[in-house]
Every structure is written in structure tokens, then in C-alpha cells.
Nucleic acid binder design. Structure first.
Lengths: 333, 333
DNA sequence: GCCACTTCTGACAACGTTGTCCAGCCCGAC
DNA sequence: GTCGGGCTGGACAACGTTGTCAGAAGTGGC
């Protein structure tokens, strides 16, 4: 910038004015400065700018896995909103590891991102309290924060799961297995609660062996599904599955597509996924709208950044049962 | 930091030393400083650090669409490599718009990212020359840069497409339609070239109406597919499709899944996608490995950042034909 | 007791930008 | 001719950190 000023024969501040398109520079001077800028290939150093101004025009997003088809649209939606506000998006995957979430969040805070959108992997976010107090707006999405208050955007996991399970019950199923994500994940617990509620409302008992929470690794899911289908572990064999998220659903689709298991059980899954309608049978799902979750979260964030300082808000987004067929397979008699 | 120093009764530099875990601080002093840090909730301001040190420990990634199932794993792979090098990832979607690519790239350069990984949307990257000269390492992935030299990582689009089309020919098809992405996209042209090569090698003519390049919007693809199936536009009806990328393939799967079109045509697609094996018929694809592309690109990038200044390299990653059935549907006689 | 040496610590400048404040200039009006 | 006001431009400090360098304090040998 010094060089530009020297070459254009003006002061530093004048160059700054031109770069920032401030008023109060004669067209002639501006032209000279512009020439010098292009001649020298000058580009403003945003680090210095950030240091001086205090705002980085960037927001951080921490989620489980950028490559997960559920989170990718969420991420994209946050990016779009950020872009509309002139901010860049810094992305991090926590891989469902609380320590990594924390490490990422603090790294982003050290960079002084203006705000943070977090899909929590950890259950305790008190470590963020000083940062939030220091002015970093924070919004949680998909799952609530632990031990602090903050804006959040959630899907209606309980209602969604209940309606999905009720759909299976309405089609005659009495023995329904629930395979969900790790129990420390809030949505997994809520969906299980929805499952139990639907069963209880129909007066149906739930055998212990019909419920399996754990990681989304295909092997684990396959093993639990096989167990439930065989009736091992105490309960009678299940005739239908309700799955707690997209990863589990896809694995169950594979399990039930095996020739010896074709049509052996009905299936309703939480989360929609591409091509669900083209499988045979097409897969009935309780759909969330991940892009909508991301957009809502980002909007809450920029609302804070615009100065809103009212009580933390909770936004709930509805789910939608999309009946496609796999939930309507009748139980064998 | 000043406050921390005051509270601990030490100088600024000593706090800096503690924060950076530099040697040469007595354990007693370090303890006092640490106490002050936690008491005041101090966090180093990385903007200032960046300004002073000149390196941001962050890399930028520009691609078409973060939410595309092809690019999401690529992005994740870049993130992983960056993380291994202690760098954060700043992400931007160009939406296949050259102006937006440029705007994003320059914004990232202004932030002084250490390096840039770009899936080009534009065909001319001369605008990056000053930035590269200024020391921002740049790697192109999936498509080559325009009018500048730089490291790049490509898939073997030509060979892949040729082998995919050859697969269809081997199963008796003589009239094969090619539906690909916009002709300004390098991979689209290469894949078309591969298609023509395979046809030529088999001595088969290619009617003009069998080739359609354009956007990946489902409507466009559906219309072109219908045209080719009906034999409108001059050529005879096609008996098989080769599709130029994952988006087009998915739309073609839908077209061919319609009851009146069931089994009317064979299909081989470029890019693998989830659940391709569970469709009926399972979809034969020419698979790329997007995570591998991203990883390779990031590795090239960090190689540069580590100081390598040899000639720009081009890395080619092979594709793999995964025969699943949809390519083996015989042509109607 | 003195010196050489090591270990620890702090003052200061610099990174590149922008906000504040003031000076100079030109114009028109009295 | 002079004065006021509007416009344009520049000097300087500050943002929060780290590298340099020098000084202070402690240690051991003679």
C-alpha cells in the first residue's frame, strides 16, 4: 500500500480511501491510484484490516461430517446466507468427536470469526461461554447445546419418529425394531422417545432386544438388524424397522435387499435421501429439510450479528412423513 | 494480552512465550501467566498473529457445489489433509459461475490463505497469476486451469468414458446416446471425446442427435433423453445412454424407471453414487474416487507450501468400470 | 570477590490497515 | 480583497501479536 501511495504520489490514507470506495477522492486522484494498484498487483491485506476493524466477515461451521448427504446441504445453505451477508465460511468436521469439536471451535474463536454455527458433538459447551461473552454469536443446529443458553434450530425428532412408527403400526405391525445413533446424541434419544411414545399409544410392549442405539457403522447396524430379525436376545422377531437416521436407513436397505431377506420386514427411516423413491420397495421416510435447518440457523446468526440481543431463541422445524411403500409392507401372519 | 501481562506481573513478551509454548520460561512464571490467562479468559488473536507472521494456516477450497455428492467427499478429504497440517479450510461454492469463482478466489487471496484448491468454473485463470507470483500456492482439481501453469489433479475422463461406452458396445449396442455437462467444462468435453473414440473404434457412426451437452438440470436432461429415445432430430432411436456425470445419471435413472420406459435402454454413467447397486437394474458406472482427488490435490498443495518449487505437476487418477447390470441390458431387436 | 556464562525477562519496533484530526486549497459571496 | 466553507489529502496513532536485542538475575569456577 505504501508502494501504491508512492507510485501514485498520494498519501497512504488516500489509497485506503480508494480501496474502500470512500467518498472524498477526486476522480483524477482515484484514477492515478487505480493505475498504481493494477500496475503493482496490489491486494488489500485482510488480516490487517480485520485487526484494525475487529470484524472478520467470516463465520465458522462445525458439523459432524461435511461429506454426509444430510449435512452437505446444510453446509451449503449456511454458505449461501453468509455470502448474502458478505461473509466467508470456514468449515470443520468434528467426526462426532467432542474433543475435536472443541478444538475446532476454539481455533475458530481465536481467528475471531464473527459467528459460529455448530452441530454439537459434545454434550457440554461451557467452554464456549467466555467466547460468547466476548461477542462471538453462536447458534446450535440439529442438536441443543449442553449447559449453556444459545440460539438453536432443531427438527422435531420426537414428533417425527412418533409419526413414522405410527405409520408402521397403522399398517399392522406390532413388533417394531428401533435402530438409532449413539445414545449421547440428543436426536437419537428424542427419536427413541418418539418410538416409545408411538408404541405406548398403541398399547404395544417394547422388548429390550428391539432397541439398539450405537454408531452408524454398517457392521454394527447389520448385526443388530440380524439379531432383531431372528428374535435373538429375548424379544420375538420384529416385522418392521424404524431407523434413526439416514446412515442407518441405507444400511437397513441393504440388509433387507439381500435375497434371503427380501420383503421380510417393513422399514421407515428418519431423514430422506436421494433415490429413496427408486428403490424396491421405495423407502418411506420421515423427512427433514437440512438446507432449511442450515438457512434458519444462519439467519438466526446474522440476526445476532446485526445486534439483536434478546433472549436465546429455539426454532423448531417440522418433519414430514413421505409414504413411499416400504412402510406399507404388511407383517407376515 | 496486556491485561494478562499486568495481572501476572510480567512483560508482554513473556505472555507471548507462554502462549506459544516457547522454551525459556521458568515454571513458576509460566504458572502465574497461565492463571492470569484462565482468569481473564484470554485467547490469542490470530488476526494479529497472522499479520505479524505472514502465514494464516488456512487454505481455501473453491468448488462447484459443496452439497453435490461428488464434491462433498472431495472437500472432506482436503479438510483432513489440511487438518493434518494444522490448517483450517475456508470453503466456497462457485455454482459453476466463472465470475463467482473469481470473486471467491480473490477474496480468499485477500485473506492471505496459504494456498488454494480450485475446481475451476472459469476457463481463464490469468487473474490468479499475480496472486500465485505473490506466493499463494494453487492447485487445480478435476479440471485444468486456463492460460496459466499450475499443479493439477485430474481423473482420466477420456479413458473412463471410452471404457464405459465400449462396455455398452460389447453388449450389443450400436446406437448410444451421450448426455453430458456444459461444453465449456473440460471434463464434459473429454468424456465426449472418449465416447466418440469408443464409437469410432467399433466402426459405429454417431448421429448428431445422439449427443447432447448442457446443464445438469433434470428438465433439460429429460427432454434430451426423450428426444433420443424417440429418435427425433435425425438419428434413429438410441438403445443405450452414456451419461457424463452423477447428476445426469440420476436423472436418467428416473427417466428409465418410468413404467412406460422400463428396460427400454441400457445405461452407463460417469461417477459412482450411493445406492447405485440397489436400483433395479443396478447401475453400471465409471467410478472416480473424489476423496482421492481431494487428498491428492491437498498433498500437492502442502508439498508446495513446504517449499517445493519445481515444475507444475499433473497427477492423473484412474477411473474404474463397475459393471452392475444396467450396462448389460441387450438392445431390442 | 570477581568474572564468565547461562537462564530468564522485558522494551521496542514492526506487520498493513483504518479512524481521527488537521491543513491546504479552491470557490464563491460579501 | 478577504473571509468562510466545502472539498481533498496526509500525518499519526492504534489494532494485538511476535522477532530482535539487550539487560537482569542467578550459577559456578577461580
Amino acid at each position: 500500500m505504501k508502494d501504491v501511495a508512492a507510485r501514485a504520489g498520494v498519501g497512504l490514507k488516500t489509497v485506503s480511501r480508494v480501496v474502500n470506495e470512500e467518498a472524498g477522492v477526486s476522480t483524477d486522484t482515484e484514477r492515478r491510484v487505480q493505475e498504481a494498484i493494477t500496475a503493482l498487483g496490489f491486494r488489500r491485506n485482510d488480516s490487517a484490516r480485520v485487526l484494525r476493524k475487529g470484524s472478520t466477515a467470516s463465520v465458522g461451521l462445525i458439523l459432524e461430517d461435511l461429506a454426509d448427504p444430510f449435512y452437505a446441504p446444510l453446509s451449503r445453505a449456511v454458505e449461501e446466507v453468509a455470502r448474502a451477508h458478505g461473509a466467508l465460511l470456514i468449515n470443520g468436521s468434528s467426526a462426532e468427536d467432542p474433543a475435536r469439536e472443541r478444538e475446532l471451535a476454539l481455533a475458530l474463536c481465536a481467528r475471531r470469526v464473527d459467528g459460529l454455527v455448530i452441530v454439537p458433538a459434545s454434550e457440554d459447551h461451557r467452554y464456549l461461554a467466555p467466547e460468547i461473552a466476548a461477542g462471538i454469536a453462536t447458534v446450535f443446529v440439529d442438536r441443543p447445546p449442553g449447559h449453556i443458553k444459545a440460539d438453536m434450530v432443531l427438527s422435531e425428532s420426537f414428533d417425527g419418529a412418533r409419526s413414522g412408527v405410527a405409520h408402521l403400526i397403522a399398517h399392522g405391525h406390532r413388533r417394531i425394531g428401533f435402530i438409532g445413533d449413539q445414545p449421547r446424541i440428543h436426536t437419537a434419544r428424542e427419536r427413541l422417545r418418539g418410538y416409545r411414545a408411538a408404541m405406548a399409544e398403541a398399547g404395544l410392549p417394547v422388548a429390550d432386544s428391539w432397541v439398539a442405539l450405537g454408531g452408524t457403522e454398517p457392521d454394527r447396524v447389520r448385526a443388530d438388524a440380524a439379531r432383531m430379525l431372528e428374535g435373538q436376545g429375548g424379544g420375538e422377531p420384529v416385522t418392521a424397522f424404524f431407523s434413526g437416521n439416514n446412515r442407518v436407513t441405507v444400511t437397513l436397505v441393504r440388509v433387507l435387499a439381500a435375497p434371503e431377506r427380501r420383503g421380510r420386514a417393513a422399514l421407515v427411516g428418519f431423514d430422506d435421501f436421494e433415490l429413496a423413491d427408486l428403490l424396491s420397495p421405495p423407502v418411506t421416510v420421515v423427512a427433514q429439510n437440512p438446507a432449511d435447518l442450515g438457512r434458519s440457523a444462519a439467519q438466526l446468526l446474522f440476526r445476532r450479528l446485526a445486534g439483536a440481543d434478546d433472549e436465546p431463541r429455539t426454532v423448531c422445524r417440522p418433519t414430514r412423513l413421505i409414504a413411499r411403500g416400504s412402510g406399507e409392507i404388511p407383517p407376515p401372519r
